[in-house]
Design a protein around this nucleic acid. Structure first.
Lengths: 349, 349
DNA sequence: GGTCGCCTCTGAATCGATTTAGTTAGGGGC
DNA sequence: GCCCCTAACTAAATCGATTCAGAGGCGACC
């Protein structure tokens, strides 16, 4: 019954005494053969346990695999546990699913520095974030569509979020109530890796190297407009958007003597803001009386809790949907810029 | 320079005046040809923009694709936003990455009821959770390894968590302080879909149909051992492990008059427990004085917050690692049962 | 000097499908 | 009865690689 090797289309054709073309058509183009023959073929296929054309052979012959690869700048382990990346993937998966495609996950931080060979199996690529090594993109088969998310690949389609105005908006909201001492916690903003206070000597990355630079520009514009000296606002930096990495930096901030501790912290991500919130609560600080906190991203974790995080929401799911539609050719592959929405929670009313 | 079509291995061989075998060996088996020839081939490949053997053709010929598929019982959209599933994927990705494999995401809840044809491209399958339609598993190429996670496929390897003892342990912890009124919030436990109170008429699913049944058995054993009448404990049920679905059910519980509202809620998942926590806090209930809450899973969101959730941790990342190692043949493909760890937080000290 | 073995390299079969061009049979129109 | 058209089916080329069996050359050993 179940032989060790799977039966092939050719063998099935021989069993039936028909050509391989007819069997192929029975599965792919029902209008190309008579109803009776088709039924006969499908019945025999079921009987012999033939599960349909082999994907490897089919993809070689047709040149298409029905697979779209998502190439993530961060490691898969990190990305899968990051709410923003998960939402993006979720939006991508939704559209791919609806159009009979599947999702292959690739990371720019593999064990070795090269793209795995299996990458070239995909029909198209969605690239999320700036790769650690730009040469990785050279390995992608150039004749397949590529869509960049949250950064740019020259000459390719892209989906972006309007970071500067979003950051400006939330900072304006926060600065309506003048803080005694504001502070900013950045994410991967410095040229040299830095987990802690950003000193005057450190150079910052440009907006083409990190999206948080655009957010900082928005913050600065808001400070300026409120007559505050942005350059005097203390800044910290974290290299990774995780509890583990953020915790020591934030503890350093919260453990400052009362007269130095900020009473307003603008954070570059919800993950950072939530970590601030947790650690502040554990120290018995009153939120928002003793400390006001803002985030960025609008992840679910910040909203389905009490107090709710004040933040600005980017629709990462929609970002994924658009990228997926572009890569499938369902939508013109042009640069798209998404807007954001201010969410006023209880951490900074 | 860059023609529209990619150059093939055969064309590269012709350019160089060598056989295709040598070019193939240059990329795959460096010991099979002289150093000089190999360098000459690689140099010419670079010059002509040849990016290495095509994955489609290679996988057809070798029979292996270096791709492992993860088949998820839930939709991808749900799974990617579920912390437990994400941790599992994360563990899988970690091992696959380290061994040069990539990850293909498939869902048992596709648009149509059949497995996408591209599934047969994978070298092996990790199946997570009970499929909505069991026939989906028949579509999987049977000669490739399959590993079941959190359920069983007859005759296949599996990775399980020891649910009953885990649930027993946390219930025992909670019952050390006798509650006035305990309650249990279940997850997809009833035969008929039900979001709300479980009445006496409803039949429960067996442990082979849902993992939460084993957890309930553990709870019941603990009640028995503490001389409490488990059958008298009110139970609720939710059909999906999300804020949206849980919220109305939990509001119904918390809005009960004081003398009926439970002061101990045992929840089948951390997601449920965290939703209880949020809604209780918004109502001004004191945790744990007015209401003690326990979860199940040990997701990060429950621990990196204040108050910390009392729960029992299953190591989903490790579960993923083991499944991946089994599917790659790095570990014997035998049934594995993982133990859990009681985490005592502030929601039920 | 002959033989053996090793190192390089090549020719050709093969993986399992899809698809083009073409053949056959049958029916309708005149 | 003839011609043309369509429907149904087939033969064979092809997609782009891998790999087995074998050929040729060279040095070493007896």
């Amino acid at each position: 019954m179940s032989s060790s090797r799977r039966i092939t289309l050719k063998e099935l054709a021989q069993h039936l005494g028909v050509s391989t073309a007819s069997v192929s058509n029975a599965f792919n183009r029902p209008d190309q053969l008579s109803h009776d023959l088709r039924e006969r073929i499908l019945a025999e296929a079921r009987r012999l346990g033939y599960r349909g054309p082999d994907a490897k052979a089919r993809s070689l012959r047709t040149g298409r695999s029905q697979i779209v690869a998502v190439l993530l700048a961060e490691s898969l382990t990190y990305s899968l546990n990051d709410a923003v990346a998960s939402e993006l993937l979720s939006g991508i998966a939704e559209v791919l699913d609806a159009h009979g495609h599947t999702l292959l996950l690739l990371s720019g931080r593999q064990a070795n520095d090269r793209m795995p060979g299996s990458a070239s199996i995909a029909d198209g690529f969605i690239v999320y974030g700036l790769m650690p090594s730009p040469s990785l993109l050279d390995d992608l088969p150039s004749q397949h569509p590529q869509v960049a998310v949250d950064f740019d690949i020259s000459g390719q389609a892209s989906v972006h979020v309007d970071n500067e105005p979003a950051a400006h908006a939330i900072a304006c909201h926060a600065l309506r109530t003048p803080p005694h001492r504001a502070g900013i916690i950045n994410l991967r903003l410095t040229e040299q890796a830095c987990n802690g206070r950003i000193g005057p000597g450190q150079t910052l990355l440009s907006a083409s190297r990190t999206i948080t630079r655009a957010r900082l520009d928005g913050f600065y514009r808001a400070f300026d407009e409120h007559g505050l000296d942005a350059a005097a606002v203390p800044m910290w930096n974290v290299e990774e958007n995780t509890h583990e990495v953020c915790t020591p930096v934030i503890e350093g901030i919260l453990d400052l003597p009362d007269e130095e501790r900020p009473d307003l912290l603008l954070c570059m991500s919800d993950r950072i803001a939530l970590t601030v919130l947790t650690l502040a609560e554990r120290r018995g600080l009153r939120i928002p009386e003793d400390l006001r906190i803002t985030g960025f991203d609008g992840i679910a974790e910040g909203q389905y809790r009490s107090p709710r995080l004040t933040t600005v929401r980017q629709d990462s799911v929609e970002k994924g949907r658009i990228a997926a539609r572009m890569v499938l050719g369902l939508e013109p592959a042009t640069p798209r810029l998404l807007t954001t929405e201010l969410l006023i929670g209880e951490t900074c009313p």
